[in-house]
Design a protein around this nucleic acid. Structure first.
Lengths: 194, 194
DNA sequence: TGTTAGGTACACCGATCTGTGTGCTTACGC
DNA sequence: GCGTAAGCACACAGATCGGTGTACCTAACA
């Protein structure tokens, strides 16, 4: 009607609202934290109206949970499903993490929410157990005598690298990788693994 | 004395306001997080008027920072200053952490604040480096060939134990201790350490 | 061409947040 | 016994929080 060009129509972005919301959420939650990100700012970043957001997600909690679910649904498949690596090599490859890697969102979320019963916190817990299970499988294939133990240990190293990187504001994953190498060499007989 | 028992006088607690504030802050920040704790609730818990709180601390940020500074000013002196332990034993003793241990407040604060420039975050970083330095000193005394490396590794294990305990909601420090034992045995020649 | 699902604008709600202003009361040290 | 530092009550400011209500619009598809 006449003044089509006027006003807010410029903001209309059409049908991809849900994806834009999740993308903006991942970015803002990572950069500012959950509590530090308001729904208004989130809508502005996603270029989505507040009404639309609340039609897709029941509330902030659900949004947080969904973000976490979408972050790495395959649980490090890009490492553990590689066919060009031996099981032993996979164990080490998991520690090849780019230095600019942001804080592990699972730890970050668990710490920020401060409620173990929150769905997102529970999912974070599940995810971390799944990572340990990935390590355990590879450790078993590599011939480790106690694959569960080694898997849990390596998973702890990843978490340590993430936490320490955050606190010190510098890359701690090389240290974690060095420890992993020692553990793997110690646990897996030289004859095995290949 | 008439109606001494009447009215709000019952709340008056006298001269120890600052200590009560810090005690209440430690407890609430630990249990509910920083963002999750309001200044009103904090005053109520500390049995201190809001005005008094703001006369002692310029704001929440300063309160958070001061809490962190007071948490462990000696940097694990209760372990590393023991005279009944050999250096090698100290390295391991640092991992004797009660299972009900709450999340390491330094990591927790660094994650929650989400701002590396915040005084409390910087102090957390300093503290974590100081812990690594403690390990390094003991590692050197124990005869480790690369004390800095071992110190950093053991410090990372502590952080990993803390982070993983929080995410999984279960005690991960025994795993960290097991890794520490392997690292120490590997790094320090059997002949040394005693 | 008509229907409709998906999106928009915007005002608004009650709650809660950190932080102040003001004036009064009390306990301790001298 | 008195001065003063420390603490108190309480109302309030201004912002921001998560979340709604209402009415309108438009793109895609049948």
């Amino acid at each position: 009607m006449t003044e089509l060009q006027k006003g807010p129509q410029g903001l209309r972005r059409g049908r991809g609202a849900r994806e834009r919301i999740l993308t903006a959420s991942r970015q803002l939650f990572r950069d500012q934290g959950i509590a530090g990100t308001g729904m208004d700012q989130l809508c502005a970043t996603a270029e989505v109206s507040k009404r639309t957001l609340y039609q897709h997600f029941a509330g902030k909690d659900e949004l947080v949970t969904e973000c976490l679910r979408q972050f790495d649904p395959t649980v490090l498949a890009h490492v553990f499903d590689r066919v060009d690596l031996s099981p032993r090599e996979k164990l080490l490859a998991a520690f090849d993490i780019p230095a600019d890697n942001p804080m592990c969102p699972y730890i970050s979320t668990a710490v920020e929410l401060h409620d173990p019963g929150h769905p997102a916190a529970q999912y974070a817990s599940e995810y971390k157990r799944a990572v340990a299970a990935r390590f355990t499988v590879a450790a078993r294939e590599a011939g480790a005598p106690d694959p569960e133990g080694l898997g849990e240990q390596l998973a702890l190293l990843l978490d340590g690298g993430a936490a320490r990187s955050r606190v010190l504001n510098s890359d701690a994953f090389p240290t974690a990788a060095a420890i992993a190498a020692v553990l793997i060499d110690n646990a897996i007989p030289e004859t095995a693994g290949r």
